[in-house]
Design a protein around this nucleic acid. Structure first.
Length: 194
DNA sequence: CTCTCGATGCGCT
DNA sequence: GCGCATCGAGAGA
């Protein structure tokens, strides 16, 4: 978790489909008052800036992209967090991709915990280790990610950031449809379970 | 294991 | 007022 390995802004200044795959195998790090936790990102989804009605930046009413207070971070520069509240209960975290003005992002859906399992377990209040940081809502709870981190610059190497993998082993990546999205695009990427 | 359903807040129009 | 980029409990197989 050396801060030297913090992924730079250029990493995110690419197509979200590319970034979603490149993020697999990298290390998510969260420093918070009650402890540091880290884990390997194992599942992501891309949300596109070009005709993606599932994107929060896309207005289904007007059939066009539109900046609103909620999705504003998506229109900002790459490498910032976009955190939103889902179903009134859970937080979900994205990392913004591509240039300012191009509203795309990658949703973090699952992390394989590495450091701070006990901290995560306390935050999650669950005994089930397998589900500690699986699912976007669970991930945010385990990593203490809430709306106060909305817009946070994850290239700063403080509070919340992403570090390059120690050794870039080639991963088997599974591509499939996004969860809870009613279209046929295969924009979900996951590390093959084995 | 699979499926169903309720909780719950707010963004958007 | 409607509809979620969700989760977990509970029922049934």
């Amino acid at each position: 978790m050396a801060r030297l390995d913090v992924l730079p802004r250029a990493f995110y200044d690419r197509n979200p489909v590319t970034v979603a795959q490149a993020l697999l195998g990298t290390q998510l790090v969260r420093e918070h008052d009650d402890g540091i936790v880290t884990g390997i990102i194992v599942e992501t989804e891309a949300y596109l800036a070009a005709h993606d009605p599932a994107s929060h930046a896309y207005s289904k009413r007007r059939h066009c992209y539109r900046q609103t207070p909620r999705c504003a971070p998506m229109f900002g520069p790459p490498g910032h967090a976009y955190v939103y509240r889902s179903y009134g209960l859970h937080s979900c975290v994205n990392i913004v991709t591509e240039a300012e003005g191009t509203p795309s992002a990658v949703l973090l859906r699952a992390v394989r915990p590495e450091v701070g399992l006990d901290v995560m377990q306390r935050r999650r209040g669950t005994g089930r280790r397998a589900a500690l940081a699986t699912g976007p809502g669970n991930l945010c709870q385990a990593f203490a990610i809430d709306l106060t981190l909305n817009g946070w610059d994850v290239t700063r190497g403080q509070h919340l950031w992403v570090a390059a993998p120690a050794a870039s082993a080639s991963l088997q990546i599974v591509r499939s449809r996004r969860i809870g999205v009613a279209d046929d695009l295969e924009l979900r990427f996951a590390v093959a379970s084995r």
